[in-house]
Simulated scan of single mutants.
Amino acid sequence: MNDKTFSVTTLNKNISIVEKARKKHSKASEEYIHVKFTYQNVVWDGWVPVEYRRTGISLKNDDEVNAHLNIAYEQMNPDNFSAWVKKQEEFWADKQRAQTTKAFFDSLIKGGWQCVDCTLPKNPNWARRIQDLKEFGYTLATNTKHYCPNCKANKTHLILLPIERGGVEGNGYETWTPGLRKKIIKILGSVDVYENNTNPHCLPDHKFPEIRWDENTKEENPEHMNENEIRQKFQLLTNQRNQQKREVCRNCYQTGKRGYPFGIKYFYSGSYDWDKTIPQKGKSAEKGCVGCGWYDMSKWRDSVLEKLTK
């Protein structure tokens, strides 16, 4: 720490940091610390996320990391596991249409690192299932080069942390009820903003990308949201385009270069480069997204057409 007057939270004596250098999963913009949690005769050896956009975790100093690990340690105590499992069973009882994803959860809940090729359920789109688990609020770590004794090669492995959904601080992605989802789609006319036509399969998308959220960004989405609030906050995209947008926003976050749809390098506000006077994360960061086609594709398209007519 540079500030010698800053008091660092004491790390629980039963926690050992195996490697302080952060493990990185660049594609998901995640970072982890390798730790061992010792509970009587049980040792949990794994990676704990310290940069994890799904739950708004972005830890920058030793004090934040130590406090976070202390809470995770308490939540992951084996004495709490039965109660935690019961809560998850109640959660999944309302997810009858997500049985394919639940199969992955059922495998990961067994604990330890699990290989995507020989341990997890066989599925050509396993990454989508893992993303679904993250969107449900579960915390996972990903090691893309973990040696698998069965495959006898380095393979992608995942480990599930049995902590509160939404993270140890209770942060996470905004959620909406099925009723609000239907309301958003109805108000936005089922129009896929990428194709600019109606599509019954499009879904609500937050204009402001979650990768730039922090713990103060998440808001409630009540069913009584009015039309103006919905139009300001959401647009509709297919799942495929939503994934494409995630990648574009991830790249923007990591490189400072804003994305542009259809190969048209045009911004109705700002430029190709992220404005360095604007914060990288938090509510204020949304100003840096304005002008990007992926942020508000309908407004971007209207601006392009206006330019063409002139």
Rank of each mutant, 00 (worst) to 15 (best):
K23M: 09
E89F: 11
V18Q: 12
N171E: 12
G112A: 06
F234P: 03
L188R: 03
N196P: 06
G259V: 04
S269E: 14
L69E: 09
N216P: 06
N80Y: 03
G189H: 04
F262V: 02
E169V: 01
W84T: 02
L308R: 11
E223W: 03
W84I: 02
K276G: 09
Q131C: 08
N80W: 01
A153G: 09
L11A: 13
L120W: 01
N61P: 09
W294E: 06
I71F: 10
Q40C: 06
R128C: 10
T101L: 06
Y253S: 12
V35M: 10
C249L: 09
T100R: 15
D94Y: 14
L108T: 10
I159T: 12
V50R: 01
A153T: 12
E227F: 01
E74K: 08
E90P: 07
N196S: 14
N251C: 04
P222G: 00
T38D: 10
S107Y: 01
P209F: 06
R231W: 07
V191M: 05
D117S: 12
K110Y: 05
E64K: 02
S29C: 12
Q280M: 10
T38G: 06
D63S: 15
D62I: 02
L69A: 02
K134W: 07
D63F: 09
V8L: 07
Q131L: 11
Q40K: 14
N171T: 08
E229L: 09
L59Q: 07
D62N: 12
G172H: 01
H25P: 06
K23P: 03
Y194M: 08
T255F: 04
A103T: 15
